[in-house]
Write a protein that binds this DNA or RNA. Structure first.
Lengths: 319, 319
DNA sequence: TTGTAGGCGTTATCAC
DNA sequence: GTGATAACGCCTACAA
């Protein structure tokens, strides 16, 4: 206290009476910081639940008394640079550059001009900006482990990526890392996937067709690892067409945990993309005092959402 | 041009060399406007495609060279007021107060302190703030008309709301207005809905159970008007259980046009929530010079997305 | 047409 | 400890 209690009370009263509120803009001018963080992303809109990225960021920002300035570039690199600069002009404390699904990209030079964090983006060239991404490889291991624990050792098919040779949609970090984790964990148990169907566009239609094709061949699959929930939805439809019951006849495990996962019947076991947590961490990292390892990669765990689409394997002659 | 071309060139050169960028904060302090708009909403996150609201707002803002400051309140009224004030402290040009689904609510007093627009919110008491909402009643009429044109006159059931007596989830503007439109349009053709099943929570589970119940009774439905796509998904599941084919045996028409609508088989005909357009209009209204009718309600049309879930009615003895 | 000074509302510094 | 004063960077009005 630098002033007397009397004066303080009087001031406070005056504040209340006048409805005085400090002008944040002028404060920003003076101090050089606007208590604002820029959030620049490619697409909020196209990916429904990626909004949770923003949600997490918003919460973390509010806890630290910050507001978020947001912009969307729809992948336009020039616009991206422009937005970053526009925000820096406004004295933001830092910028979160986010992608709605994990991608490998060049980091725009503008981001390096001040504090920044990469969210869901893996830089093609090493750079000093911290990176926050989901731990996809571990998620792959989780999926494989869950199947192994349920007793599956054969008839495990992958829907979304090819296995021999490995083939994944390019640029999609999730695909290759999930695959890696799956293969690794299965191999540790002496198991090899029975096959995999590369799907270009991970929508239900692709999952439907891939699964249909799988069923057309003699070897009936025992378990499907679908690389996202939309593929799973298509797989469910194909299984239904073939009068096969999910969990009883064919188990399905999936990734992302979009809302549709819980809408399917039986409800789909899925390994969740931790959008909220990713958003949080990006902000926390940006505002961290020491900023620890500047170029560090922060992997956020992907939790298993256990539902009913994986059944225990029945003991068979081959088992 | 108030200066000579020579000088201008020199200045521009200096700008380029120095990398000079005007300080927007100081400009804001001087001019009193920050070229920023506040976007305060209840939940970006829970409602997947509501992110399109932000998308539209973002696009409209960028076209006018504005940035968006966003905040989320999760329905906390106190936080809402606080956020609005925080944003006004930052000299925003105006505030869009948005809800992720159309709701009837009290307008916080803080919104009235400066320019504001209500997005997806219907004020309980009349107030001078412009309102942007989807035209739900007309959407209801569209749904009914589509069914009538396909030849349906009987066996039309509503899933989501009750009919005799009308019963809708409270606070949900969409439910009551859609119902109104449906009844109106059917009545104009001398048709009455055969029944309606009130569902409290408009998720697939509710749609599934309601449809199951419907099928248990003798009178087979010919057409279902599901009040959102999630209910429709549940209805599809119940129909499938009963070995009824959508479009051939029972037609389904729906509202919202979430992504899942196009994932279903057959793809679901749905009347779309114009999120993007709603977001756009809110910003445009806020920045409109004349601001025309201040307290006006702007209804944005909901377009019919024609897919395959409505079949033409077969001529029957009763037809 | 060009130059200059004053002020937007803070905060920070520096004498007292 | 306290109170006056300069400065943040820009815009604008007014004088030259």
């Amino acid at each position: 206290m630098r002033i007397s209690a009397q004066i303080e009370a009087k001031v406070l009263e005056a504040v209340a009476e006048t409805g005085y509120r400090p002008n944040v803009v002028s404060r920003s001018l003076r101090t050089g910081s606007s208590h604002t963080i820029g959030f620049v992303s490619d697409t909020v809109a196209t990916t429904p639940f990626a909004g949770h990225l923003i949600w997490g960021a918003l919460d973390a920002a509010r806890e630290r008394d910050r507001l978020l300035l947001i912009a969307e570039t729809e992948g336009d690199a020039e616009l991206e640079t422009q937005m970053i600069e526009t925000m820096r002009d406004r004295q933001v404390e830092g910028i979160v550059l986010a992608s709605m699904y994990t991608r490998r990209t060049n980091v725009p030079a503008a981001l390096l001009d001040g504090p920044g964090v990469l969210l869901n983006i893996v830089p093609t060239r090493a750079c000093a900006v911290p990176v926050v991404i989901p731990d996809e490889a571990e998620a792959g291991r989780t999926a494989a482990r869950h199947l192994l624990e349920a007793g599956y050792r054969e008839g495990i098919y992958l829907v979304g990526v090819g296995v021999n040779p490995p083939k994944t949609p390019r640029g999609a970090v999730a695909a290759s890392e999930r695959l890696l984790g799956i293969i690794e964990e299965l191999a540790a148990a002496g198991v090899t996937p029975a096959g995999g169907a590369y799907v270009k566009d991970w929508q239900p239609k692709g999952g439907y067709e891939a699964t249909k094709e799988l069923l057309r061949r003699r070897h009936q699959p025992k378990a499907l690892i679908c690389f996202n929930d939309r593929l799973s939805m298509g797989a469910f439809q194909a299984l239904e067409d073939a009068a096969l019951m999910v969990a009883r006849d064919v188990s399905v495990i999936s990734f992302d945990d979009e809302p549709v996962a819980s809408w399917l019947r039986p409800a789909l076991t899925s390994i969740a993309l931790p959008h909220y947590e990713l958003g949080r961490q990006a902000i926390e990292l940006l505002l961290a005092p020491g900023s620890e390892a500047p170029g560090g990669v922060h992997r956020v765990p992907m939790p298993l959402r256990l539902r009913e689409s994986v059944g225990r394997v029945e003991r068979t002659a081959t088992g």
